[in-house]
Amino acid sequence: MLTVHHLRISQSERVVWLCEELGLDYDLRLYTRRSDNNLAPDEYKALHPMGIAPVITDGDLVLGESGAICEYIDRTYGKARHSPGPDDADFAGHLLWFHFSNATFMATGMMGLVARRLGADPLPDFVADRTAKAWQLAEARLAEAPFFGGRSLTTADIMMGFNLTTARMFGGADLSQFPHIAAYLKRIGERPAYRRAMEKCEPGVTPKLD
């Protein structure tokens, strides 16, 4: 059976959300961060050589990396329901935002997080500039389309959603500056699959949708 190993308050929530959107029968295992350093516990680190979230197991397969996991699940179990093909008008846009999520948006956010923890105040200009541009691009995308994936939800939205919600628990933009992102998150929060996912993977935690 497909097993999703979810580290609490981490990007592995994406995988739970996708499984719920697809209506899959899967096993969900929750892991709590260590109290001394807020990192993954040893039993989670032992799942994969990188020792970080997310991780799934499916029979003998052990797979890490959010993007790879989302593609694997959507193609293997969802018949690519949330992955537009080359003949779809949303194909290029979906690809852009699917990869932009971790390659640019999250990578930039992590640079900012590390810089702050090292005492940078204000942030270095190149980090602040990249961060501002990433949020502005996301706002512009949602001004022209209802979803990052285009006219309907795709795995690009599964990927981007974490960056705009739970990741802001570690620091992030004030959504009052981004009305289209705020409206988008309201729509996401109304999706039954998203609500089920967050209730399962983050019991007792109110999703950060505003």
Rank of each mutant, 00 (worst) to 15 (best):
I9V: 06
S10H: 11
I73E: 02
Q11E: 14
M106S: 11
E71S: 06
M160D: 08
S83W: 00
D27H: 14
A145F: 12
E21A: 02
A193C: 01
L47S: 13
M159L: 09
A138L: 15
M110V: 13
L63F: 07
S12D: 06
M169Y: 10
G161R: 01
L39Q: 13
E43P: 12
A46D: 09
F170E: 08
G67W: 01
R195L: 02
A89V: 03
A143Q: 09
K79I: 00
M169I: 12
G112A: 10
L2P: 10
L123I: 12
G204M: 00
T32Q: 05
P49E: 13
Y184E: 08
Q136T: 15
I9C: 04
E190L: 04
G78V: 00
G109K: 08
L175V: 07
H5T: 10
Y77G: 03
E13N: 03
I9P: 02
K79F: 00
A138G: 10
E43I: 12
H6E: 07
L61E: 10
L96F: 04
P203A: 00
A167Q: 09
E190R: 05
M160L: 11
D87Y: 06
A53I: 06
P86S: 09
I188T: 01
E139M: 09
M169V: 14
Y72V: 06
A115T: 11
I56G: 06
L123R: 04
D25M: 05
R187N: 10
L175P: 11
E190W: 03
H48C: 15
F148H: 02
F100V: 05
A40G: 15
A46W: 14
R151F: 00
G93P: 04
C19T: 03
S101N: 05
